[in-house]
Design a binder for these strands. Structure first.
Lengths: 218, 218
DNA sequence: CTGTATCCTCAAGGATACTG
DNA sequence: CAGTATCCTTGAGGATACAG
């Protein structure tokens, strides 16, 4: 982005945070992604070359640090200091501009990636769990597997013949509204917009380890 | 700006605040400008057509409100709610990225416009005061007049034959550093980087009604 | 003063393929 | 996995002139 050539902190800050995609890259780092591919999974519509470019730029600006081996990316002290600003922007938008999701956002893979980052590992049963999500109305990634494990969970978009423990079938818009805290599990399930099938014990524990968006509870 | 197509408050917020110049336009509104030309004087490197476009966009987004007659522009409730985010961004940059001013920023007109917005009207003598500022090292607007009045002050970049009460001659970089709170009047004057000439009473009251940047004292 | 209209340029960034 | 290289498009926005 071209400089504003103004000696003003707001202008300088906007030069750092104002590049396209940059706030989302920082969001991914704030949400725990450290590896190039993980960051990219959180911002999949951005090209890999552009992500590489942004990471370099942020590194030069002193916001992030690249560590070998790995490599992994981490917020520096300056970057961590920027977190409240980015969360503040999110809180503002959550209050004033977030509406219901629209079709262009119906991406099962993307929601599930965000979901995965929030799984409450401590509440998981002490064994591996596979959950299959079906979002018939999604425009991309209509079927996604969530592989949960206290050691580390992951999201998979290809059928690799897992033994599925839990089946979730959901209207993706409703699912996203629950995730965003705009409606409740109870209401969505009562309306059968979300159906969870599997062993009763798992179904009951589901909403304990499945945490909502960071903005849902604020 | 193209949409990110993500159902995420940070992405939505970035779509509003991420357009080029937009944070600076909001800054101007936060700092008290209401009229099109006044806003533009605060962001003079932006073209007028682009400013018009941004104002419309912000109005559609519910951040600002256009009032007739005038017209004047004002932050809405949503817009005022965004203020802490923008100030937060500024505070962050003030701490982590603001260095000393560089040549591209040596614009006497722009600094003085920012200065004017902060004049402490209550501390002014009860009559009209004209201050002439000379910035020999400035790249644009090397000479600027500040017209002070309890009814309303203004900045003028053309010699209109004023009776000048106070002459300020300054190295613009030092002047900007004082403005930003990175050095003091005392030090700058001791080094003769800033020289204030005029009636003793006015010279002494000068630093009372001349307030520094909002970021200087934070 | 408060914009609008038009033209034109340039560079950001999307798409795609490739590499160590 | 972690990028790089290249090509190519498009639309953002700068410059300028004009209008109510």
């Amino acid at each position: 982005m071209r400089s504003y050539d103004e000696y003003c902190p707001i202008a300088m800050g906007a030069e750092v945070l104002g590049d396209r995609w940059t706030p989302l890259v920082i969001r991914e780092l704030m949400c725990g992604s450290e590896r190039f591919s993980d960051i990219h999974r959180g911002v999949p519509r951005m090209s890999r070359s552009l992500l590489a470019q942004r990471l370099k730029h942020l590194e030069r600006a002193g916001i992030i640090e690249r560590r070998e081996p790995g490599p992994t990316y981490h917020l520096t002290e300056a970057g961590r200091d920027l977190e409240p600003v980015v969360w503040g922007l999110g809180d503002w938008a959550n209050h004033w501009v977030l509406g219901d999701p629209v079709k262009e956002q119906y991406d099962g893979g993307h929601v599930m990636w965000r979901v995965r980052q929030r799984i409450v590992v401590e509440e998981l049963p002490p064994r591996r769990i596979v959950v299959r999500f079906d979002f018939p109305a999604a425009t991309t990634r209509r079927r996604v597997w969530l592989l949960l494990d206290q050691a580390g969970s992951s999201v998979c978009a290809r059928d690799e013949g897992f033994d599925v423990d839990l089946h979730v079938t959901a209207d993706i818009a409703t699912f996203m509204r629950v995730w965003a805290g705009r409606t409740t599990w109870r209401e969505a399930m009562d309306d059968e917009q979300i159906v969870v099938e599997g062993p009763g014990e798992l179904v009951r524990s589901f909403t304990r380890w499945f945490a909502l968006s960071p903005f849902a509870t604020r």
